[in-house]
């Protein structure tokens, strides 16, 4: 009962808004080519483990022409300001060992290509699923002898964006079998669990109602292939867990913490729903 009445409400407001403002909505068939050379897959067949969608679409396809254009050239993409900041930090020695990222890894282009596409992934040594943030902090604490960065801190958001850049255009290919399976199942359970006073699960908005409007917001599938992503709203990069927290808070729930096992599990599941889309990070969204 609850689900159907919710759908009706969302559907109505969508219709009202569509009548109100007509054009300017993005076309799912627009092509995203960055810098005239990186061709992105923004729409493709859903992976088998995504049972209730036939097509998966990048969040880019839901945005207005103007927002889309911000991402089509690196000079126009304000996220690159923060990538440049991270590049400076990549080359700066920190901590008791006197090492920088570059001391071991050379340039991000040499050493990080493809990494973002398979994140998060099972770390055999740690016996758990690790995200980019965990790898960065492991390096900082154990190899550099530096302090860990906060999960959603500015340097961490910027660094994860820099590490993502060399993987742009590569298909997201997150492993969900083997030892990661249990974490993935936990993430899936969270995805379909309603939270908060509004009793909304991730699926209510991003699976049942993607392409509809929730008030004036054009709902996407909530894909994370563009994260960390620059939002026009706050004019900075936003982390995956930061976005999860915002969504859960919008259901009027106590949220999980960024970096928590729950959010790592949710990240693995949500990332796997985008298997086949291109890594776009750092993308631009509203």
């Amino acid at each position: 009962m609850k689900t159907s009445s919710l759908r009706k409400t969302l559907g109505l407001s969508a219709a009202a808004l569509a009548m109100g403002c007509g054009a300017a909505l993005a076309d799912a068939d627009d092509n995203l080519v960055v810098n005239g050379e990186i061709e992105m897959v923004t729409q493709t067949e859903a992976p088998e483990h995504v049972e209730y969608l036939s097509t998966i679409r990048s969040g880019w396809t839901y945005r207005s022409d103007e927002t889309q254009q911000f991402q089509m050239d690196d000079f126009d993409n304000p996220a690159m300001i923060f990538v440049d900041e991270a590049r400076a930090s990549w080359n700066t020695a920190e901590g008791s060992e006197g090492k920088s990222c570059a001391s071991c890894h050379g340039t991000p282009e040499e050493s990080m290509k493809g990494l973002r596409a398979v994140m998060p992934k099972w770390n055999e040594e740690a016996g758990e699923v690790w995200t980019l943030e965990k790898y960065v902090n492991d390096c900082r604490e154990n190899r550099m002898g530096a302090d860990a960065w906060g999960w959603t801190s500015t340097p961490m958001r910027n660094m994860t964006a820099l590490i993502s850049v060399p993987s742009r255009g590569m298909p997201v290919n997150v492993a969900i079998d083997g030892p990661a399976r249990e974490t993935w199942e936990r993430g899936k359970e969270l995805y379909y669990t309603r939270t908060g006073q509004l009793e909304l699960s991730c699926a209510n908005c991003h699976e049942d109602n993607h392409d509809n409007f929730i008030r004036a917001d054009h709902l996407s599938q909530g894909q994370i292939n563009g994260f960390p992503t620059y939002r026009l709203k706050n004019a900075r990069l936003n982390s995956i867990h930061g976005r999860f927290k915002g969504c859960v808070r919008d259901t009027r729930a106590e949220t999980f913490s960024p970096g928590s096992d729950d959010f790592v599990a949710l990240q693995l599941y949500v990332a796997s729903r985008g298997n086949g889309l291109s890594v776009e990070a750092p993308a631009v969204r509203n």
Partner: peptide, 12 residues
């Protein structure tokens, strides 16, 4: 100008 700006912070 855009007919609809998705966010008022950054309008081209």
């Amino acid at each position: 100008t855009p007919e609809i700006a998705e966010n008022g912070n950054t309008v081209p």
